[in-house]
């Protein structure tokens, strides 16, 4: 437990021989992306592996339809990994306490706070970030609706708002006004764009239905 480590010179003693093919993740952003099984599979008889404290352990995350294998400390949040290790900075950081919604992503289609989710815990879920709503360089329906209704000002809470609307529409393709307000009640906007965001959510529902 007290073993020191240096990120950037991974010494994952427990895993390196078995998982030596993994590219080392340094302080930069490059990560191997490949198909593969869950990295930290338990040995069947002894139960699940204990990922050691303060050490880098390989994990596999499914993000926007791609498989990312990377090294993390058990305490790293999904938010930190997305932004600072994978460079997916569409997901924003506002509080790291589950109190603002700027880091909202979808996990298996449900909006969640990436700041309150350990990266190790996100294994096995399909994670969708703002970047995952793009169709190539084209905006997705919710994004387009936000543009049309000017549903933001500074734009920093916007990715989280968009993901909340995306999650809402995946569950309720034709949401009522009340469902829209409720669906967005986990995302703060300090610029106060809520009323335009409600409109954008309604417009997005139309766009998604091809109207």
């Amino acid at each position: 437990m007290t073993q020191k480590h240096e990120p950037g010179e991974c010494r994952c003693s427990r895993g390196l021989t078995r998982r030596g093919f993994l590219s080392t993740v340094g302080a930069g952003v490059a990560v191997a992306s490949a198909a593969g099984k869950l990295a930290a599979q338990p040995a069947a008889s002894q139960g699940a592996d204990v990922l050691p404290s303060a050490e880098m352990t390989p994990i596999t995350l499914n993000i926007n339809g791609r498989t990312h294998r990377l090294l993390v400390e058990p305490r790293w949040s999904l938010l930190f990994v997305l932004r600072e290790r994978l460079g997916l900075t569409g997901t924003k950081v506002g509080c790291e306490r589950g109190e603002c919604g700027a880091c909202t992503v979808l996990m298996d289609d449900l909006p969640r706070y990436a700041c309150m989710t350990l990266a190790v815990e996100a294994q096995g879920s399909e994670i969708t970030t703002l970047e995952g709503l793009m169709r190539g360089e084209e905006l997705g329906g919710v994004q387009q609706a936000f543009v049309e209704e000017d549903a933001f000002q500074c734009g920093y809470c916007t990715p989280g708002q968009i993901m909340a609307v995306e999650g809402l529409l995946r569950a309720h393709p034709e949401p009522s006004q009340e469902e829209i307000q409720m669906g967005l009640s986990g995302n703060l906007c300090r610029c106060g764009a809520y009323v335009h965001i409600f409109k954008a959510a309604g417009r997005a529902a139309q766009l998604k239905r091809g109207q």
Binding site: M1, P42, G47, A48, L51, S77, E121
Partner: peptide
């Protein structure tokens, strides 16, 4: 920021 900890995700109640 969180403190350090180890992590395990057991498959059964007994193991947990």
């Amino acid at each position: 920021m969180l403190p350090n900890f180890s992590y395990v995700r057991p498959k059964s109640l007994d193991e947990a």
